[in-house]
Amino acid sequence: MTDLSTLRFFRTPAHACSYLEDHQASTLFVDPQATLTPALYSELSQLGFRRSGDYLYRPHCEGCQACIPARVRVADFHPRRRHRRILKRNGDLEVTRERAHFSRECYQLYASYIDYRHGDGDMYPPSEEQFNNFLICDWADTDFFCFREAGKLRAVAVTDTLDDGLSAVYTFFDPTLDDRSLGVMALLWQIDYCRRQGLPYLYLGYWIRQCQKMRYKSQYRPLEILIQGHWQELQDD
C-alpha cells in the first residue's frame, strides 16, 4: 500500500461548473511529476479519484460537495426490465477487447459523437490530440471494448482495470442509433464483464443529484456512494 501522505496535490483556480449553473468548481490533481501506477490508481479510486489522460483528479470545490463518487456493487446487480430490453435489442453486437490506442476507425466515431452530442460543450471541436490526451494513458491498464455490428464499429467503452474492479472512463458511440441505447448497453456489458472476471465493482465517476445528466447512474442498483470517506449504499434518488 502506498503512503499517500507523501503525495503532493494541486488545486486548480475556481472556474464555472460544468454541471450546476451559478456554481464555481475547482479540481484537486495528483502531482503530475509523481510516479503513477495502476496500484496507486486503484487506491485513489477508492478515495474518489478519477483518471483523465495521464492525470488523476477529484472535485474539490469550496462550499459544495455535489459531486459524489459512485460505483456499482456488481454481485448484487440485477438488470431492470428496460435493461433487459436493451440487451436483447443489441444481441447482434460483437465485442472485442483492444488495448487503448489511436486508430482512424475509433477517432472517426469519437469525433462524430462529440460533434453530435457535445457541440456546445468544452470538448468541441474534437481533435486527434484531444482524443489521445483524454483517453489514452501510458501508465494505466486501459482497454477499448469495441462493439461492432457486422464489422461496423458502433460503440467504444474506454475502461481501466483496477485492483477491485473496472473504471468506466468514457463511452462514445454512433449518435444516430438512438433506438439502441448504446451508452446503456456498454455500461450493462461492463457490469457483466466485471462479474465474469470476479471483480466486485464498476466505478462510474460522480453522481450528482441536482444534475439530470449525472443522476442516471442511480438506475444501476445497488449503487454505492462515497460519503465522508465511507462507501455506503444509495438509499433514494
Score class of each variant (00 low, 15 high):
Asp3Met: 14
Leu4Tyr: 02
Ser5Val: 02
Thr6Cys: 13
Arg8Glu: 10
Thr12Gly: 10
Pro13Asp: 08
Ala14Pro: 09
His15Pro: 00
His15Asp: 08
Ala16Trp: 04
Cys17Lys: 07
Leu20Phe: 02
Ala25Gly: 02
Ser26Phe: 05
Phe29Val: 12
Pro32Trp: 08
Pro32Met: 07
Leu36Glu: 01
Thr37Ala: 00
Gln46Met: 07
Arg51Gly: 05
Arg51Leu: 12
Gly53Thr: 03
His60Arg: 14
Cys61Trp: 06
Cys61Phe: 04
Glu62Gln: 05
Ala66Ile: 12
Pro69Ala: 03
Ala70Ser: 07
Ala70Gly: 08
Arg71Trp: 13
Val72Asn: 12
Phe77Ser: 05
Ile86Phe: 09
Leu87Pro: 02
Lys88Cys: 12
Arg89Cys: 02
Asn90Met: 15
Gly91Met: 15
Leu93Gly: 08
Val95Phe: 09
Val95Asp: 09
Val95Met: 11
Thr96Glu: 13
Thr96Gln: 15
Arg97Val: 08
Arg99Asn: 04
Glu105Gly: 03
Cys106Ser: 10
Tyr107Leu: 02
Tyr107Arg: 00
Gln108Trp: 03
Leu109Val: 02
Tyr110Ile: 02
Ser112Glu: 11
Asp115Glu: 13
His118Trp: 11
Gly121Val: 10
Leu135Thr: 14
Thr142Pro: 02
Thr142Ile: 07
Asp143Gln: 08
Phe145Leu: 12
Arg148Trp: 01
Ala150Asn: 15
Ala150Glu: 15
Ala150Tyr: 10
Lys152Gly: 10
Val156Met: 14
Asp163Tyr: 08
Asp163Arg: 09
Asp164Val: 01
Asp164Met: 03
Asp164Ser: 06
Gly165Gln: 11
Leu166Cys: 09
Ser167Glu: 15
Ala168Thr: 13
Tyr170Lys: 06
Thr171Ile: 10
Phe173Ile: 01
Asp178Tyr: 04
Arg180Pro: 15
Arg180Ser: 14
Leu182Glu: 11
Met185Tyr: 13
Leu187Trp: 05
Leu188Gly: 09
Leu188Ile: 06
Cys194Pro: 09
Arg196Gln: 14
Leu199Ser: 03
Leu204Arg: 06
Leu204Gln: 03
Tyr206Cys: 00
Tyr206Pro: 01
Cys211Thr: 07
Cys211Lys: 05
Cys211Gly: 04
Cys211Glu: 11
Lys217Tyr: 13
Ser218Asp: 15
Leu223Pro: 01
Leu226Asn: 00
His230Met: 15
Glu233Lys: 08
